[in-house]
Design a protein around this nucleic acid. Structure first.
Lengths: 188, 188
DNA sequence: TGTACATCAGTGAACGCGCGTTCACTGATGTAC
DNA sequence: TGTACATCAGTGAACGCGCGTTCACTGATGTAC
């Protein structure tokens, strides 16, 4: 069972609490505002308590990013739901952009070069790769997957950076994804 | 004429000196290492001297980024040189990726959400937009330009973030750019 | 050509700040007997 | 069921650090007469 302790000690799941607090902080104050001390403060705990759960600040940030990648993966899986493979794939692309627009600072942390853990986010990537392989066959899968990921990631980045302005990002994403030629991917 | 002052006063063009120093710092120590104080130090000048030329740190960073956009524009113009419009366009795309790989931290500053000046980098973007319009005609120009920019920008970002690993980025860029369907951009 | 003076472009000291991290500690929990 | 004790998960104080920025200043330069 789950018992709520009234004492300040033994938070229960401070690791999770810190990740949630950090994510909230990230939302409101951007990557620059995401400090270890502020995260602990937000979680209602002393700064040093964080060191029971994370080796250092980088480890905390990495955990927050990893949590974000799980959320992204979930969003992609949810969107990957259509009998037509190409439609499913494009829905994933749109979901990617929508996820980023809903969580701009989280995405900045995930993809901003702040985190240096190898292999992080690979599961999310695999969801897209799998559907692309269904679309174009295994021999073209790699190139087309990279292309699809690039186009969707680039659109995302440019929108977040306000270099592209649109009031219907989903429609724009769909339109741009349609530019990807899935019929003759290997011709150059 | 240009006279070199032996005195420490009146640097001559400290504004430029600071931008160059900042860029060097950026190369070596990333965006996090690009502080106003360190930049002044690198330029051989007291920190306060910077305030004669920039209102605050943000203004300095913006100037460094703007300088980067000029360099990018120059690179794109140089690459935009082939009788066949599509080849010229793809060369631009490859140049974009190469520029980023050669200047990863500069690109992170330019596109990392650090700078908030409106319209910065538009001239570089226009170089690509112009060539795309030659390829696909004015009616499709906007969508295809955004698509081309997105795909190249996304590939760049993913490579810089080490999510895509390749030892021949230019070839990969060319291959992925070839996925863009320039023949029927408006069909969905 | 000199000189007085305004302005420009630097200086170093100092400010307050929040940061990441270490330290010695203590209260709460789990376990062996 | 109690008790002794190890371990776990928190505490607050303190550290040194580098930051952006302000301040009063001074040396160098340009200009009017």
């Amino acid at each position: 069972m789950f018992t709520v302790s009234t004492s300040k000690y033994h938070h229960g799941d401070l690791r999770h609490g810190l990740i949630k607090a950090g994510r909230a902080l990230l939302c409101d104050h951007g990557v620059a505002g995401l400090t270890l001390r502020a995260t602990a403060r937000e979680a209602g705990v002393s700064a040093t308590a964080a060191y029971r759960h994370f080796a250092d600040k980088e480890a905390l940030l990495t955990a927050i990013a990893a949590d974000g990648f799980v959320a992204l993966e979930t969003a992609l899986r949810a969107a990957d739901d259509h009998p037509d493979d190409r439609t499913a794939m494009r829905q994933q692309g749109v979901a990617y952009v929508q996820f980023a627009i809903a969580n701009p600072n989280l995405v900045r942390l995930m993809f901003g070069g702040v985190i240096h853990q190898d292999g992080i986010g690979q599961a999310a990537f695999a969801v897209l790769a799998h559907r692309v392989a269904q679309c174009v066959g295994p021999e073209n899968a790699e190139t087309v997957t990279l292309g699809a990921w690039s186009i969707v990631h680039g659109l995302t980045a440019l929108i977040l950076d306000q270099r592209i302005k649109t009031n219907d990002p989903a429609a724009l994403a769909a339109k741009i994804l349609a530019l990807l030629d899935l019929t003759r991917p290997s011709t150059c």
